[in-house]
Design a protein around this nucleic acid. Sequence first.
DNA 1: AATGAATGAGTTTTCATTCAT
DNA 2: TATGAATGAAAACTCATTCAT
Lengths: 239, 239, 239, 239
Amino acid sequence: MMPSSPPTWTDGLPDENLPPPAGPAAKPVRRRRARTVGDSESSRTRLLAAAKEEFSRFGLMGARVDLIARRADVNKQLIYYHFGDKDGLYAAVLEEIYRDIRLRERELDLGALKPEEAMRRLVEFTFDYVAANPAFVALLTDENVHGGVHLQNSQVLADLRSPFVGMIAETLARGAEKGVFRPGVDPAQFYISLAGMSFFYFTNIHTLSALFAKDLRAPAALKRRRTHILDIIMASLRP
Amino acid sequence: MMPSSPPTWTDGLPDENLPPPAGPAAKPVRRRRARTVGDSESSRTRLLAAAKEEFSRFGLMGARVDLIARRADVNKQLIYYHFGDKDGLYAAVLEEIYRDIRLRERELDLGALKPEEAMRRLVEFTFDYVAANPAFVALLTDENVHGGVHLQNSQVLADLRSPFVGMIAETLARGAEKGVFRPGVDPAQFYISLAGMSFFYFTNIHTLSALFAKDLRAPAALKRRRTHILDIIMASLRP
Amino acid sequence: MMPSSPPTWTDGLPDENLPPPAGPAAKPVRRRRARTVGDSESSRTRLLAAAKEEFSRFGLMGARVDLIARRADVNKQLIYYHFGDKDGLYAAVLEEIYRDIRLRERELDLGALKPEEAMRRLVEFTFDYVAANPAFVALLTDENVHGGVHLQNSQVLADLRSPFVGMIAETLARGAEKGVFRPGVDPAQFYISLAGMSFFYFTNIHTLSALFAKDLRAPAALKRRRTHILDIIMASLRP
Amino acid sequence: MMPSSPPTWTDGLPDENLPPPAGPAAKPVRRRRARTVGDSESSRTRLLAAAKEEFSRFGLMGARVDLIARRADVNKQLIYYHFGDKDGLYAAVLEEIYRDIRLRERELDLGALKPEEAMRRLVEFTFDYVAANPAFVALLTDENVHGGVHLQNSQVLADLRSPFVGMIAETLARGAEKGVFRPGVDPAQFYISLAGMSFFYFTNIHTLSALFAKDLRAPAALKRRRTHILDIIMASLRP
DNA sequence: AATGAATGAGTTTTCATTCAT
DNA sequence: TATGAATGAAAACTCATTCAT
């Protein structure tokens, strides 16, 4: 799994710790082959991680196959061996991303909570996941730029009908029944609003930072945003 | 609507009715599609329009200088003449869309309206503008992918501090004072939420459509979204 | 007729029912198409058959080692194990087809026939063999494109001096002696003409079909060609 | 294991006067730019000539875009500018080849000749053209390997219905009428036979040379072949 | 005899940009 | 202001071949 660090907009430094280019200049030492052979699965995995990083930073078009391979420290052609082409790799990354969030969603255990508590957890989960996984946000946005074609052909789409909206629906229903939430809120629309309030903050953080002349990536700003979303969501649900 | 010529390597354009390629057509007569009459618009203007379309569809990296020129039906070199380079053109497009939305925002005349009415108009304006200007949404998002650098270097940044947040602030204050809105709502955060609920719907329309197995671009879906946003915003502001 | 799997990067094969790619299928189970029963044939044999097909279709340069292995349903590396390299495989295929035609030629039993009958049989054999073995024609032509080097280095060259020209010579001589054929026909030249009239029809069948706006592969067209060759050959031999 | 070099019959010199490779080794002198600028047409023409040479030697698959550009002494990318891609260039070469032979065919002035003379001229023309234009033969054969697709999409196909078969038909008819040729000879089949006898000699010259253990490219051998064809054709037409 | 993974050296193609007029 | 031709650098992708087991 990609560690903590991989900010999208955290800025386009050339890059940190990539191995030196393969070009004819870098001939000498045979560094590499440190990895024990028969590393098959590991190559694939490392490739996916590297691709996730590069694609989330630069998008499908902007990412470079060469750099992905270098970052994964594997031969470039292995990408074609394992994934067919750049788009295949991109699709694989998207699938993995989706698999991860679906996993996390399932861990949410709302059944035992009161509606208000459950809703709070849903909101927090959404914001926190988005905040912690800039690659997720970036990739999803980029995939939409490309018309969502990579996910359409993916069998992950089957799993796609995430439990999340279901959880929202149930929570809204329980709250309405119990009289703590106003009734008639459409769960799907509510989901889009919820996600939108978090996503937009991060996808547009640069122009928003400029607009408000402050760094929205600062911890204090993040905390403030989180509180606001919670606030507005709960307020909107009052009976 | 590809013209006469037999299917050649110029096929597969991602678009509708673009003029023939700039490279020498296989051989025949150099029939350039007669620019439709009454098109006194300068090639600069046409370039901007074409660039707006292409950049909004494919992003800065994905858009092709060639296609932009073709769409504008001008020589590719003119892009360099007028805008220096691809990034210059991109920046020019961004400035233009900003100029446009600022213009529209100024036309909002909220002073005479009751707070509730004013707020309703703000919400509707946001959604409607975004819905009517997909290029605006796409470009703004894409610019953020690139760290917002094109706007930073732009002199439009001066205008950037849009009146919109001010209008929101004022409306919220008037409403709170009058007792029709709950107090303590941060206008900046509120703006982000408002915009996010509209933006996210459009930037992520493909994956959302897949998620809900529904075409969210359908007029009925749009109407529904608009209503929902209005609904949730107003509900959240109740005292 | 690609198998189950969804359309991926493995599509677009130039052929019918090839087994799935050698690279790791996107992910699922490694179902290798069960080799049809009764296939005690060694993988070497299957490789030769597959290579013959691919080389005859695409030529030495155009054929792909990968596809050959796939068609033979064996691991690509086996090609190198058995034949050294691509050229070695190509040479082996050439030897095999030569072996085959030499075999058939020897089965022609012309001794007992009258010269006219013998000649008729020679002509028919040539056309029929060529018609029935498109790979033979294609491979021979392709080998000539490459300067005939693979056959030169082959030990089959020893057998090369086929009995066929001898048969022609003898038949012409017998006919001339008997007064049914005009004398002075050079057997070697005659052989080339005979073969040429059949070969050319098949090697150039596409452009010829276009030229005559007719599908020359149709059974009726084939029959017609066969008759014509017989006709013209016999006519040319009249005393 | 590719031997020396794969010449058709033109013979396998590595190559004559190609400019040195563009690789980083060859940096220094800026030789070139000797050509006056605005050489547009000349570039295209030179590209076609170079392509004709390379494609005829190595076929569509075997020819290298790089070498073609180098031989033409133009920037490689100009190929893409002018012809779209490798296939486009190949198609253009084919068209030119066809244009040439059509031109020559039209120059044949058979009207004034007696049928026997006219037929003789047709036969000689065919052999001589094929003998003098190895590239024509090679390209036509190679195009057939690829299914004739490049010519199918070409508008030259319109001109394709060459006058040649018509000339044959007319000559045969005149001869039959006059009683010097036997009647009932199908012109189309006759054309194929005629061409086949010349083509096959050249396309298969290597294996044939091996078969007969003599160099069929030797002038004497060519002359002999020419005479034989004339001989057999005329003999076959006797009433 | 057989396999899946891996690789280096090409090869076509793309693309922003510049030239010369 | 406008154009057609040309270009260098880099990009994705191909392909025969080898590795390690």
